[in-house]
Computed example of a mutant assay.
Amino acid sequence: MAAGPEASEHLVSHPDVDMVSFTGSTTIGSRIGEVCGAQIKPTVLELGGKSAAIVLEDADLDTTIPTLLGISVIPSSGQSCVCQSRFLVPRSRHDEIVERLVAALAEVKVGDPHDPEVQMGPLITEAHRERVLGFIERAVDQGAKVAFGGGIPEGLTEGRYVEPTLLTNVTSDMEIAQEEVFGPVVAVIAYEDEDDAVRIANDSKYGLAGSVFTSDIAHGFEIARRIRVGTFSVNSYSADFNSPFGGFKKSGIGREHGVAGFESYLIPKTISVDPSVTLPEEIVRSADTVTRGV
């Protein structure tokens, strides 16, 4: 059974809780940080994201297009903090890429996730579906165009389904380009050159994840170094459980996974003695195996 806000805040603020690790929304994470900060209590906060997938001029669309869908709308119906929800594409290839994306989205089967042929299931609650549809409606009001989807799938009125949705004519200052939708909605944003693409990718209060698609992997690494996010992939997106995972800016503080994840739960302690003193043998032995304490 999940605890409500009152019980959760009691647990977070309790003096016997030495450290808090939280995965969830930036709003709740901010409140947890406020409570823990007042107590000088360490936290690890893995919060929201608005990740950008940058498609460079030389990207191979035959492999890029299916990968883009596989790291955005298809997994968990876009209900993922690392969902690549902004596709940054060169203006010179914009129409071609949009056409290919629309054709690929038309092949995505939405429905009961128990069906092995289904690729995309429902959203978590009715209220969340209405929230996602609200984002789409406001995006259109602000000038975006629905290239694909935008509503409830035909024949799936029962349940919490939203069509995989592709929005074009989006600019970086729109709500749909700045706020986390947490649903199967992707905004396509055209850029003029690579510097412009980097600028747009970094134009976000979030900094959790991102990706770049290019035929030149070395150049992909150059782009990766310029994007201010915690995890970034070239020609894919995946989180390695052996590597640190977390974000910059309002995507959180601290890291999960790998050695860095364990270190978040440890507090270094130093014990020193006069260097001229010969230490007892049992202390020397223990120092070989015990390097940290709490």
Rank of each mutant, 00 (worst) to 15 (best):
A103Q: 11
A127C: 06
A106L: 08
G111K: 12
G150D: 04
H114D: 13
A147Q: 04
F135A: 01
V110F: 12
P153N: 02
V98T: 09
F148I: 00
A106V: 06
A127V: 09
V98G: 01
V132Q: 05
V102K: 12
E96D: 08
V98N: 03
G134S: 02
L105P: 07
G143W: 07
K145P: 03
V110C: 12
P116T: 12
E154Q: 04
P113L: 12
L105I: 03
V132T: 03
I136N: 01
I97C: 01
E130F: 11
A147R: 04
L133D: 06
H114T: 14
I124P: 08
P113Q: 11
P116N: 11
D141C: 03
L101G: 06
E117M: 10
K145W: 03
G143L: 05
T125N: 05
G134M: 06
A127G: 13
L123T: 09
I136Q: 00
D115M: 09
V102Q: 09
E96H: 00
E154S: 07
G149D: 03
A127I: 08
V110L: 12
A103D: 14
E117I: 05
V108A: 14
P116I: 07
T125Q: 12
E96W: 00
P122R: 07
G121I: 15
I136T: 00
V118T: 15
A144F: 09
V146K: 13
P122L: 08
L123A: 09
V132D: 06
E130S: 13
V118M: 07
F135D: 00
K145T: 15
D141G: 12
A104W: 10
P116Y: 11
F135L: 01
E99K: 14
M120N: 10
